[in-house]
Each structure stands twice: as structure tokens, then as C-alpha cells.
Design a protein around this nucleic acid. Structure first.
Length: 528
RNA sequence: GGGUUCGUAGCUCAGCCAGGUAGAGUACCGGACUUUUAAUCCGGCUGUCCGGGGUCCGAAUCCCCGCGAACCCGCCA
């Protein structure tokens, strides 16, 4: 095999950062600070895919720094966007606020200043828990402070040209007529209902009329107000088809990832950035949407949302980072059921990194180690952490629901899996325990038990609840079955059904003693 | 209509984006241990890598053409 030059840590992130640097050099741009951006939606509950945009941008920042450049991640919150649809589970009174900027809608959870701030805070909280560093930039401040005023002006004076181009590039006709700017109506506070029909370039003002619009299949009545908005300080926003470009130039953004759902918008924005604003557009990478396990798009307004907050109830922060950094291509169906594999996979990477596992292919070793470093945000630990297989912990957690941590730990020491307790293992037991509690609920099975079996169960229950611990429980169970003329096989099966909701299980005698024989006695008596 | 992604063991999928002996979990079979069951541990079995062409010393991987499935865009942000 030919010697291959390994770029950086050998991951797709390094390759992307390398391409970015090559492009910046070719453009002859200043690279003293390379800014990367991530746009955060603020209209709905942020799911794990929303985190992906920022986490991956942060990965690129890390790669750039690793190559010796200064870099910064800007997390831009789209909180001037109007609320279009009420997410599942949120109160109906939000209907009164449809099409208002999310920053002007009260927080239905009551803990933040606005709806928009609540949603972006959830996302930022996720980033914080992953230890992703960023500079937070709100859309509302951006427009209020006139940070985009030059770009807005340039776009509006070229709106005709842009409108034609949009129609040509993506077939959307509306901007042939409409200006790509949405003022917030001074009278009713709504966005989208106020249609901008004329730009006064000398005054930098927009004339609009609040005539109404349709969102989806819903018709929104305007209030009829005739108004004038100053683009340098009054509230309003650029349409998405041109807003990114304005931001890119204003904030000097050199990289932004995007999901394939906004592919067309990015295409248009690249053109606007290059041709209208004269700012060579940032390097991009496109990623696929995360789908739920049914293959449906994760929609913020549906109930199938996997958020970072719920994920972290079962999985480590590293498992999220691994999910997002291991690759970027391909449609991904994601759900909580992926957590055990990801947590275990992280440990495997750790073992490769520290040389405990050897791979035959050197390139693969390099890439695995590189991935491990990125998952640790290029600051890997000095030594491996104690670890126990997540699936084993789920099994043990199903058995021990009370005093779980000490009991599971004791079992692990008996198994020889670990030598002693540690905070890392206790944390894993907690996570796997939550997983077992929420997803492996003991389903109380409806059992048809004949009278003979009931009699035998009753005898066993009495034996278990007696004061003296049986010396050979395994044999006692067998004898009880036999003396009642029941096939031991069938009797064991019933017991497994009662205790584990399964046809099979571990050797019953010691197992019952592990769980606590009096507790099992009670459980059995529920079926008599 | 335009675009993107996917197709790999019976099942669920990883590996593909930087080509180098076909992988995991599960299921199944066997072993440790057992008077029945085997959670756990150990070992074993499992392939038209969707089909066809191309590049290459070498293709699951890269390119092209088909077939099948899903998603996005063609409202809006």
C-alpha cells in the first residue's frame, strides 16, 4: 500500500478543515481568526440533530486550532423567526401568538423571558453539558443593533436581480415581486402578515402593509396597518433565502454546516454572498437529517423528539459526541435504543487509544484514535477510565431495582468485572438503571396458572418467607415441583415468567437469594 | 418535476466519505456450571456486500447505468 499522508487526526473533520484552509488561502483571505457559525432554531424543542449542527461546527473549530489557527464558534439563535406551528404538548394559548417573533412570546414553561429564549437555552444547555464552547449571538440583538444594516440595504437595492435569480435557481417565484424582508408590524406585532412592497434606499426605510399571509394551509389575517420600518433599527428580518449571506459577511463567517432540508436556501445564499455582497461564501458541509426509528423526519412539533436532555438521562455526554462525530454522511435513524451501543463503542475507542486493543489496519487505528480525541474535544484523558459493559449493567439493573448501586457493584465485584467501586462505574449504573427502568419495564404478564401449580407456588412462597434461609434453594424448588407432580421444566418456566417476565433466566436458587427471598415470596403471592 | 440518502448474515445494522483477508449485536448450535432452565462467560455457524458495467495490481468502499426503498425541496422559516 502506498504511503498516505495523514491529515491532522485522520477524521472527516480534519479533511474538511484542510479543504477550508486551502480555499481560504486560494482566496487570499486573512486567516488570523477563522470564524465558524451554527444556526440554532428557536421555534421548537431542540432535538439531538439541532445539536449536531453546532457540535460539528465546533469540531471544525477544533481541527483548525489543531492546525495552528485561531478559531471561534458563533451560535446564532434565529429568535426573530415567527412562531408558525405550536409544538406538540404546548398550551393552546400560543395560538394567539402565531407569527409573532418567538422572542416576543411568553415562555410557556415560565422560566425564561420568552419562548425563543427558552428554546435556545435548552440547546445551549445541551452544548454546555457536552462542554462545547461558543459565543452566543441572538438574532433579536443583531437586528436591533443594526449589525446587518449594510447587507440589508445591499440586498434590498438588488432585490429585483435576486428575485429573478431565486426563481431561476430553485423555482420559487414569490421574490420576483415581494421584497426579501419581513417587517414586524408595529400595530399587531406580527411577522409575515406585513408585506414589504417598497424600499426607500435614501432613507433606508421599508414601506409595508399588514395584509395577511398563509402559513401552510392556515390563513393569517393581517391587521391592515400601513407602516414604514427603518431597517437599521426597527424590528424585522431578512428572508432565509438571503439572511445567511448577510450574516456571513457581517460576521465574517468562513464555515457553516447545513442540513439537506435547507439545501436550496444555502445555494441561493452562496450566490447572494458571492455576487451581491462580494463576500466569498463560507465553506459548507451538508448533513442528512436524523430520522426516528420509523424512518420519519424528527419534527419538533411531533412527539418523537430525542432531546439532549433526555438522552443524557441514559447515555454519557461522550455517547452524543460519538454519535455526531463518527460520521456525517448518510441518513441516520436515531433513537434511545442506540445508546447502549454508543456507550460501549466509546469504550472500545478508548481501549484502542490506550493500546489495549490492537487493530490490524494502521490507518483504521489512526482514525479510531483521532475519533476518540475529537469525542474528547481534543483533550483526551491521560489514562483509561474504569468501565463496565452497558448491556451487562442493564441486565443487572433489571434485577436490582432497590439499593441498585451497591447491589450491582457487589455483583460486578463477584463476577470479577471490576475490583472496586468508582464514581465512573456508579455513574454508568445510574444511566443504565434509568434505561432499564424506562425501556425494559417489567411487564406484568397475565399467566394462566393451574391449581396444581398454584399449590406448588404457595409452598415455595412459604418456604421463602420463613425465618431460616434455605441451604439448598435450587434443590428445594426442584423437590417442590416433583412432589406436586409437575415437570420441573414447566415449574421453572412459570417462576421465570413471574420474576423476570421471561421464559428463561439465570439459575434460580442463587438468583432468588440475590433479589431477596422475601421480596420474591411477595411477588409470587400476587399470582395466587 | 428537482435533489439527497440508503440497499451488507435469518433479523437489526456497522464498515464506505482517505480502496488492502467480510464485521458486530441478535437468533441458532456447543462448552463452563446445572437434577430443569442459563442471565453471565468462552467457542462455533451464517454472505450473489441489490443488479450490471468501468477505474485499479486490488472495489462492499471510487465512477457510470439500472432496480427497489426512504427522505428533502417545489409553502415558509
Amino acid at each position: 500500500m502506498e504511503e498516505q499522508q495523514i491529515i491532522g487526526k485522520g477524521t472527516w473533520i480534519d479533511k474538511l478543515a484542510d479543504e477550508l484552509l486551502e480555499r481560504e488561502k486560494a482566496l487570499g483571505r486573512n486567516t488570523s481568526l477563522i470564524r465558524v457559525e451554527s444556526g440554532l432554531g428557536a421555534s421548537g424543542i431542540p432535538h439531538i440533530g439541532s445539536l449536531g449542527d453546532a457540535v460539528r461546527a465546533y469540531g471544525v473549530k477544533l481541527a483548525l486550532e489543531n492546525f495552528g489557527y485561531k478559531s471561534e464558534l458563533v451560535a446564532y439563535s434565529d429568535d426573530v423567526d415567527g412562531l408558525r406551528k405550536i409544538p406538540e404538548g404546548l398550551p393552546d394559548w400560543l395560538n394567539d401568538h402565531i407569527s409573532k417573533p418567538v422572542s416576543f412570546i411568553p415562555d410557556p414553561f415560565g422560566c425564561h423571558d420568552s419562548y425563543g429564549l427558552h428554546m435556545s437555552s435548552l440547546l445551549l444547555d445541551g452544548l454546555d453539558k457536552l462542554e462545547i464552547k461558543y459565543r452566543f449571538q441572538r438574532g433579536i440583538d443583531t437586528y436591533r443593533n443594526g449589525l446587518l444594516k449594510e447587507q440589508i440595504h445591499n440586498i434590498l437595492v438588488n432585490s429585483k436581480k435576486i428575485g429573478e435569480k431565486i426563481a431561476e435557481m430553485v423555482g420559487q417565484e414569490k421574490y420576483r415581486e415581494a421584497l426579501p424582508y419581513f417587517p414586524v408590524c408595529t400595530n399587531c406585532g406580527r411577522l409575515y402578515t406585513a408585506i414589504a412592497y417598497e424600499y426607500l434606499p435614501d432613507e433606508r426605510k421599508i414601506k409595508y402593509r399588514c395584509t395577511g399571509t398563509t402559513i401552510g394551509s392556515k390563513i393569517l389575517q393581517g391587521c391592515g396597518y400601513d407602516g414604514i420600518a427603518d431597517i437599521t433599527k426597527d424590528l424585522g428580518k431578512l428572508a432565509w433565502k438571503v439572511e445567511f449571506a448577510a450574516r456571513w459577511q457581517a460576521f465574517d463567517v468562513r464555515f457553516e454546516a447545513y442540513g439537506k432540508d435547507i439545501m436550496d436556501s444555502v445555494k441561493v445564499n452562496d450566490w447572494v454572498s458571492d455576487e451581491i455582497l462580494g463576500f466569498p461564501h463560507p465553506t459548507h458541509v451538508k448533513y442528512e437529517m436524523f430520522l426516528d426509528k420509523g424512518g420519519k423526519k424528527i419534527s419538533k412539533s411531533l412527539g418523537n423528539v430525542v432531546t439532549s436532555q433526555t438522552w443524557l438521562r441514559y447515555g454519557t455526554p461522550k455517547s452524543i459526541l460519538l454519535l455526531l462525530y463518527k460520521r456525517i454522511t448518510g441518513t441516520r435513524e436515531v433513537g434511545f435504543e442506540d445508546i447502549p451501543a454508543l456507550v460501549d463503542e466509546y469504550n472500545e475507542l478508548e481501549n484502542i487509544y490506550f493500546g489495549k486493543i490492537k487493530l490490524d489496519n494502521e490507518m483504521k487505528t489512526v482514525k479510531a484514535k483521532g475519533l476518540y480525541e475529537y469525542v474528547n474535544l481534543l483533550n483526551p484523558p491521560k489514562s483509561p477510565k474504569p468501565y463496565v459493559n452497558y448491556r451487562l449493567l442493564i441486565q443487572l439493573s433489571k434485577i436490582f431495582r432497590e439499593d441498585r448501586i451497591p447491589k450491582v457493584t457487589k455483583k460486578l465485584i463477584e463476577y470479577g468485572t471490576i475490583k472496586e467501586s468508582s464514581p465512573e462505574v456508579e455513574e454508568l449504573i445510574t444511566l443504565a438503571g434509568n434505561y432499564a427502568d424506562d425501556f425494559d419495564k417489567p411487564t406484568k404478564v397475565e399467566l394462566q396458572i393451574d391449581s396444581v401449580s398454584k399449590k406448588a407456588l404457595s409452598q415455595l412462597s412459604n418456604l421463602l418467607s420463613s425465618e431460616n434461609e434455605p441451604s439448598d434453594l435450587q434443590n428445594d424448588i426442584y423437590q417442590i415441583a416433583k412432589s406436586n407432580g409437575i415437570q420441573p421444566k414447566d415449574f421453572f418456566k412459570i417462576l421465570y415468567q413471574i420474576i423476570l417476565a421471561s421464559d428463561r433466566g439465570p439459575k434460580l436458587g442463587p438468583f432468588i437469594l440475590d433479589i431477596g427471598r422475601k421480596k420474591v415470596s411477595l411477588t409470587i403471592s400476587e399470582y395466587l
